[in-house]
């Protein structure tokens, strides 16, 4: 394993200029498409899981085409941990807010109507949107961090 890593570092395997330029152009569009899939999940195939995986795959693509250090400049390890915590907390926090908000039930988003009157049905639609964003954040950061940790043998340094 160490031998392969050394070879990769010396010969720059799979890192030709064409691949790097193409990835550099493609990655913003992939991330935009991931955000679209998350946000447009009410009206088309999509949602938090799918969009989160697409966003995570953009960081995996950056790591494969460049280096792990280069990908960690875009999304540092600390920011990744904060985002995964924030995603899980957004979901469970919304659910708990429903429960403590004027006698609503756990995960019943129409109870949030008493906090900000938009109508119970609109709140049910909007609550689904909020938890989809939470799921998307958690899936994105955790799939990216799984790849980074497995690829760099736990060092989060140079990587593959």
């Amino acid at each position: 394993m160490r031998l392969l890593q050394d070879q990769t570092a010396e010969q720059k395997l799979g890192e030709s200029l064409i691949i790097q330029t193409a990835v550099r152009i493609l990655v913003p569009f992939i991330q935009l498409f991931g955000l679209y899939v998350i946000v447009h999940g009410h009206y088309s195939p999509g949602g938090g899981f799918q969009g989160g995986v697409i966003l995570g795959a953009s960081f995996v693509l950056l790591t494969l085409a460049f280096d792990q250090k280069f990908a960690l400049k875009y999304m540092s390890e600390k920011a990744n941990n904060i985002l995964s915590n924030a995603g899980a907390l957004l979901f469970t926090g919304t659910a708990t807010l429903c429960a403590i908000c004027y006698g609503g039930k756990f995960l019943d988003y129409s109870a949030l109507d008493k906090l900000l009157p938009l109508g119970p049905i609109a709140w049910r639609s909007f609550g689904i949107f909020v938890i989809e964003v939470g799921v998307g954040l958690a899936v994105m950061s955790i799939s990216a961090s799984l790849f980074w940790l497995l690829g760099s043998n736990g060092e989060m340094d140079e990587g593959l």
Binding site: G41, H42, Y43, G47, F91, A95, A122, G127
Partner: peptide, 19 residues
């Protein structure tokens, strides 16, 4: 008011599962 039934069931009716 969500036309995508998969999202509606995923986020609202089966919220425990997803959470």
């Amino acid at each position: 008011h969500v036309p995508n039934l998969v999202t509606a069931v995923l986020g609202d009716y089966r919220g425990y599962d997803t959470m």
